[in-house]
Design a protein around this nucleic acid. Structure first.
Lengths: 245, 245
DNA sequence: CGCTTCATTGACGACGTTCAAGACATGTGG
DNA sequence: CCACATGTCTTGAACGTCGTCAATGAAGCG
C-alpha cells in the first residue's frame, strides 16, 4: 500500500490552497464543519488515485502536486480530459461511480472529504455550493478551450498551448513578459495523451520549438520560456490573455 | 431586428422543459419568483443569439430548437464547443461577458431570466443553485467525452459519435435496438466544426457510412439508423451506454 | 431560368502516425 | 567498475488519413 493517510490535520488557516479551493468562501464556523469530515491522503507519482467505474468514497482537493484525469477506449487509446493542479477539485457529488481514472503524475497530497457528509454540507451551506459551482464553471470553460486545442490546432500549436498553460500557472498576469522557468510535470507520453498526439510527435515539436528559440531545455523536463507572449502567439492565442469577468 | 420578444408568459406547468431545465426542482413559490424575472424570446435559424465578448443581459434555457456554442480563432478556424438542445442552459452567472458565440441552427425559443435578479435567486434559493450545479457537472462530463472524440477518434468514428448523440436524444435507453429516424439539425459545415474536421471529410464519411449500411438518408438531412448498437460500435463506444449514477 | 446555398466527389499533397533504431540516464548484479 | 537491463526520450523513413483545391450536382427561391 503506497498511499498513506496522514494522522495530523493541519490548521486550515495555514493551508496553501485555503483561498482558492472549494472552501475558499467558508467562514470559521463552516471550516470547523469541514474539518470534522476531512482527512489528508498522499500518493506517490504514478499511483492511481481513482479507477474509472469505481465507487467513490470521498471527494476532495489537490493540496500539492499534479494529477491527471484520463479516459480510455477499449482498444487502449487514451485521452487526458483534465489536468488537476493545487486547489482543483476531484469527484462529483451525488454520483457514486467515478467517470475517469485519476492518476498522480507527481507526488501529491489531497485534502479529502467523506462524500456523504460533504453532500449534506452542499445542501446546507451556500458558501460551499456556490464556490463549487464557480469552480465547475471554470473547469467547463477550460474543457471547452481545450476542445479548440484538440479539434483545430496543429501539433506545434498544441505543444505551445500546453507550455503556455503550465508557464502561466501561479504566474501573476502582469509579469508575463518576463522569462519563465518550470519543470514539466508530465512525461512525453502524458503530454501526448493530453494533446491528442503521439509521443513521437510531441518530442519532435518540442525539439522544433527549442531549435526556433521559443523554449530552452535543461535536461528533458526543465523548461525556460524566454518570451511568453511570443510563445502564446505560436500557440495561436491572441496576445491578450482574454480575461473575461 | 429578426429576434422577437413574446408578450405572453405561458404557464410554467405547461412548459415542455419544466422537469429538466434549471427550474426543475423549484416549488410553486420559487416558480412564481422566476416568473417575475423571465421573458421569452425567439430567434430564427442562423441568427446569432450572443456574440463572444458581448455583455450578457440575461441567462436562460432553450425551450425548443437547437443552438450551438462556438469559439473562433483569429485566422478563422472555428470549433464548436457545445450543442444546446431543449432544457440546456445558456449564460454564466457572475460573469459579464459571453465567452462564446451562441448561434441558433434552427428556429429557437428561449426562456430568459434577467441576469442580476437571477443571480440573486441563485444565492437565495438552493433549489435553483443545486440544479444549476448538477446541469453544469453534466455539461462538464459531456465536454470531456467530446475531448475524447476530438483527440482520439478517426473521422468515421467522429461522425458515428455525433449521429449516436443525435439519435439518442429524447430516446428512452431501453429501445435503443429499434431503428431511429431524425433530422440533422446541423449543416455539414456545422458538423465539421463540431467534430474538428472539414466539411468535405464529413460528407465523405457520411457517404461511407451510408454505403456500409449503418445509416440511410432521405434527402440530405433526414437520417435513419437501422441499428443503433451497431452504429455505437462503429463510433468506438463500448456497447453499454455507460450509465453511471 | 439564373442565382445562391448546401452537399458530393475527385485528385493531390501535407501533416501526423507508425515502425524502427539508437541515445541517454539510472539502477542492479556480477 | 563494468555489463546489462529498463525507462524515457530523440530521430529517421515510409505510410496513410485527412485537408486543400477544384469541379460538379441538387435544392430552394427570386
Amino acid at each position: 500500500m503506497l498511499e498513506s493517510t496522514l494522522k495530523f490535520s493541519p490548521d486550515c488557516s495555514a493551508c496553501p490552497i485555503r483561498h482558492r479551493a472549494v472552501c475558499a468562501r467558508c467562514d470559521a464556523d463552516e471550516l470547523a464543519q469541514l474539518d470534522e469530515i476531512k482527512f489528508y491522503r498522499s500518493y506517490q507519482s504514478g499511483q492511481t488515485i481513482v479507477w474509472a467505474g469505481d465507487r467513490m468514497e470521498f471527494v476532495g482537493s489537490v493540496v500539492s502536486g499534479v494529477a491527471t484525469l484520463t479516459q480510455t477506449m477499449e482498444d487502449g487509446r487514451t485521452q487526458m480530459v483534465g489536468l488537476l493542479l493545487p486547489s482543483d477539485f476531484i469527484g462529483r457529488p451525488d454520483r457514486v461511480a467515478a467517470a475517469y481514472d485519476v492518476v498522480a503524475t507527481t507526488d501529491i497530497v489531497m485534502c479529502c472529504f467523506r462524500k456523504k457528509p460533504f453532500e449534506k454540507m452542499l445542501d446546507e451551506t451556500p458558501h460551499v455550493a456556490h464556490r463549487l459551482l464557480e469552480m465547475t464553471l471554470d473547469e467547463l470553460d477550460a474543457a471547452r478551450e481545450w476542445m479548440l486545442v484538440l479539434g483545430r490546432k496543429t501539433a506545434r500549436e498544441k505543444i505551445a498551448s500546453l507550455l503556455v498553460i503550465l508557464a502561466r500557472r501561479g504566474k501573476a498576469p502582469e509579469d508575463e513578459s518576463a522569462s519563465v522557468v518550470f519543470d514539466l510535470p508530465l512525461t512525453r507520453e502524458a503530454m501526448a495523451d493530453y494533446l491528442g498526439l503521439t509521443l513521437e510527435t510531441v518530442s519532435r515539436q518540442i525539439s522544433a520549438l527549442k531549435k526556433d528559440g521559443f523554449i530552452r531545455l535543461k535536461g528533458k523536463r526543465n523548461v525556460t520560456v524566454p518570451d511568453l507572449v511570443r510563445l502564446m502567439q505560436e500557440a495561436g492565442d491572441d496576445s491578450d490573455g482574454g480575461y473575461l469577468n
